[in-house]
Nucleic acid binder design. Structure first.
Length: 734
DNA sequence: AGCACGCCGACT
DNA sequence: GTCGGCGTGCTC
């Protein structure tokens, strides 16, 4: 009697469907549970590893075309079924091909290799009757530290855990040789004996009350929008709530933006949490990544800390999720599976029935709206940790003003005064390079990247023309390519030019430029910030790299060189981004005991959004900006998806979207459709990019209409010729 | 995505 | 005569 058991399998291919197979020969039911992998023949002559997502009782596929799977290597689900359900929902929400999404959410090793059985590990510990570690480090501080760490862990520590705490292999080797440490092997197993909180968390009264509000909600689904200005100590609150979860034997998941995962931050968490911390970052090797994933799944680590992809880490005993700097753009993946880690964190918290904390000084309008609607609870940390009063903010009206390069007379005066008083200043200009464009004085031709049709940015120091959209470069030229005239004029100002202008205007000032170009060398950023800290610079010039995280106590003046670019942009989120950046940059002014001032250069001092931001602060700005979105039916007051197409010729890209539009209007006449429109950067790296914008007033409309529409498009022959993708809740309209 | 099939141009 | 270019079609 042939085995007729059926499997429904997700395959790592960009197809919006599942594949049915017959069970492999000689296979127990245990190995066929949803969440187990199967090796199957796929297409012509290929064998791939897929994942079982269902055990159907019947199949719509004709009996004759059903193939038999080859093997099922896992004798229990590799992905716990509830977590599998979460991953499948995420792929459906973003309308991304199931199997592709699913496998992108798993560590690479799980995708291929079979080596996921519980591994044995080598542990290091102090021998049973070892003498107590010596009281002072003497000439071997690392060895001393190792002994102390081991003394605190009677069950032993892995070499990985030791390495994470700065104990290298060679230190262990010498300790082993002296017999001060012994090596044992055992099966990897969970160890719940380590107490949470190595260093206690000290909280001020505000932090204390917010933390206890949130701790009280452990065990139920709540979204806490933690609103705290820069320096108010959000991290301490996170740590306190996490510690409370850990005390109950639960795990915590912490998401940080890409630039937030600094060694300093990790150290800080590790000091409070101890060794049961898994840090997931892009530099991790495949093996380590898979190991952390399984450690979290099986409860061997209590805290998982990472950037956006860490949201897909399975947890044995979830207790709380933290999303730091919730408004940050890096939570949205911009290619492949285009998910938002922040939004998925909220979905996860609801699934698990646990609280999630969305922290920010400048919450996204999505969060502001959810707070206003009562879906999220707001927790505020009003105080700055220091005693400095908030900075004064003043507009400098650039209309008709005399400029020295990009600098107005008033800004120059302020810089000079500040310099004389021995204080530091910061000038913020979100454009690197010397000049954002070059054109010919004779014929007006703008030197542009041939693949993107965007002006080249002139980098004077490097003597190169750089396309900031596709990163292509070419050597400087002195002649106009069109009319062969040799007078090329520099248009606009970048940080490089600003630095040069300042050097001539204020020859006595020591100027430090901090942008992607000046900090390219390894460790350069750290060295520059150290110089700034040591008071070895009077004026810092930089891009948004300067906006975050650095405390410079002697910095009292912040100048925003060009506030206008965020006000009139093709991207409806530009103003929100601008405001978030301003608040962050302004937060740099006047820490310590010195009052700060912020000067904003603009041609539009009357602009209502800019005024509300400056005169009333981020909260009122956000409410006003939200009102504008409401009036224009833009997200978050509506639901948006963008279908993008790309081709080296324009016509097929347009035709595909026209076809898509026709099909969509038949399927869902209640949806609003705009386009096909060229994307704001119409051509990038030699390809034409077009987009079709789909808007609905309710999420459920999108969820209902998009799947059959996309399935139809997938069958369309034209769809095979152009490169296309769907982006649900797009963040970036360019 | 990958892989095969298929039909046209320049090579040992 | 065939090697190989990538357009087209298909994956239970």
């Amino acid at each position: 009697m042939p085995d007729t058991r059926l499997l429904r399998v997700a395959m790592p291919v960009p197809l919006r469907r599942l594949f049915d197979y017959l069970a492999p020969p000689d296979c127990t039911d245990d190995a066929l549970q949803p969440g187990c992998r199967v090796r199957v023949p796929f297409g012509k002559g290929r064998t791939l590893v897929g994942m079982i997502v269902e055990r159907p009782t019947r199949s719509d596929v004709p009996q004759a075309s059903l193939k038999r799977a080859l093997a099922a290597p896992d004798d229990s689900p590799l992905v716990p079924p509830p977590h599998l359900g979460f991953l499948l929902r995420a792929s459906a929400y973003y309308q991304h091909p199931v199997g592709d999404a699913l496998f992108q959410c798993l560590p690479g090793n799980v995708r291929r290799g079979n080596d996921t059985r519980p591994a044995t590990e080598t542990l290091f510990r102090l021998p049973a009757n070892a003498p107590a570690p010596a009281g002072n480090p003497g000439r071997a501080p690392r060895q001393h530290l190792a002994m102390q760490l081991l003394a605190g862990a009677p069950n032993g520590l892995t070499s990985r855990a030791l390495a994470d705490n700065g104990i290298s292999h060679s230190v262990l080797a010498s300790l082993l040789e002296k017999g001060l440490v012994e090596k044992i092997g055992r099966l990897r197993a969970s160890d719940t004996t380590v107490s949470p909180g190595i260093e206690p968390v000290a909280l001020n009264p505000h932090q204390q009350s917010v933390a206890s509000n949130m701790t009280a909600t452990l065990g139920g689904f709540v979204v806490h929008a933690l609103h705290g200005v820069t320096g108010s100590g959000k991290t301490e609150v996170y740590l306190a709530v996490m510690a409370a979860a850990l005390e109950r034997g639960l795990q915590a998941l912490v998401l940080v933006p890409e630039i937030g995962l600094t060694p300093q931050f990790i150290d800080r968490v590790r000091r409070r949490i101890g060794p049961e911390l898994a840090v997931v970052h892009s530099g991790l090797g495949a093996k380590e990544r898979a190991q952390s994933w399984m450690d979290a799944r099986d409860g061997r680590v209590r805290v998982v800390l990472g950037t956006r992809s860490a949201v897909w880490t399975p947890l044995a005993n979830p207790g709380v999720i933290v999303v730091d700097e919730e408004h940050d753009l890096s939570y949205k993946q911009q290619d492949g599976f285009r998910y938002s880690a922040r939004d998925m964190a909220v979905v996860r918290a609801r699934d698990h029935g646990i609280p999630v904390i969305l922290g920010s000084a400048t919450p996204s309008l999505e969060t502001v709206r959810n707070v206003a609607a009562g879906r999220y609870t707001e927790q505020s940390l009003p105080q700055r940790a220091g005693t400095a009063p908030p900075p004064t903010v003043t507009f400098i009206d650039l209309r008709g003003a005399q400029l020295h390069g990009a600098i107005s007379a008033r800004l120059l005066d302020a810089l000079r005064t500040n310099l004389e008083q021995g204080c530091q200043s910061l000038l913020f200009l979100n454009r690197r390079g010397y000049a954002p464009a070059l054109h010919c004085h004779q014929c007006g031709t703008v030197l542009a990247c041939p693949r993107c049709d965007m002006p080249y940015t002139w980098h004077k120091q490097a003597r190169r023309l750089v396309c900031h959209h596709c990163s292509s470069e070419r050597a400087a030229q002195s002649q106009c390519p069109a009319c062969k005239d040799s007078e090329l004029v520099q248009l606009g100002h970048g940080t490089e030019r600003l630095e040069e202008t300042l050097a001539t205007l204020l020859p006595a000032a020591r100027i430090l430029r901090i942008d992607r170009d000046s900090t390219r060398a390894r460790g350069a950023m750290g060295r520059m910030m150290a110089r700034a800290h040591a008071g070895d610079a009077d004026i810092l010039v930089g891009t948004q790299m300067l906006a975050k995280g650095h405390h410079l106590p002697n910095l009292t003046l912040v100048g925003i060189v060009d506030a206008d670019r965020g006000l009139y942009s093709a991207d409806f989120r530009a103003a929100e981004r601008m405001a978030q950046l301003f608040v962050q940059v302004s937060g740099r002014a006047g820490r310590g005991n010195l009052p700060g001032q912020v000067l904003i250069q603009t041609h539009h001092p009357e602009h209502p959004l800019l005024r509300s931001l400056v005169e009333q602060g981020y909260g009122p700005f956000a409410r006003l900006a939200l009102k504008e979105r409401e009036d224009a039916s833009l997200p978050p007051c509506s639901c948006m998806a963008v279908l993008r197409s790309e081709h080296y010729e324009q016509a097929p890209a347009v035709r595909f979207l026209e076809l898509a539009r026709t099909l969509l209007q038949k399927a869902g006449p209640q949806l609003q459709v705009f386009g096909p429109l060229p994307s704001a950067l119409e051509r990038r790296a030699g390809r034409f990019r077009m987009q079709l914008i789909v808007q609905a007033s309710r999420r459920s409309q999108l969820a209902q209409i998009l799947p059959p529409w996309l399935q139809q498009l997938e069958k369309e022959p034209l769809g095979n010729r152009v490169r296309w993708s769907i982006d649900v809740d797009p963040q970036d309209m360019l």
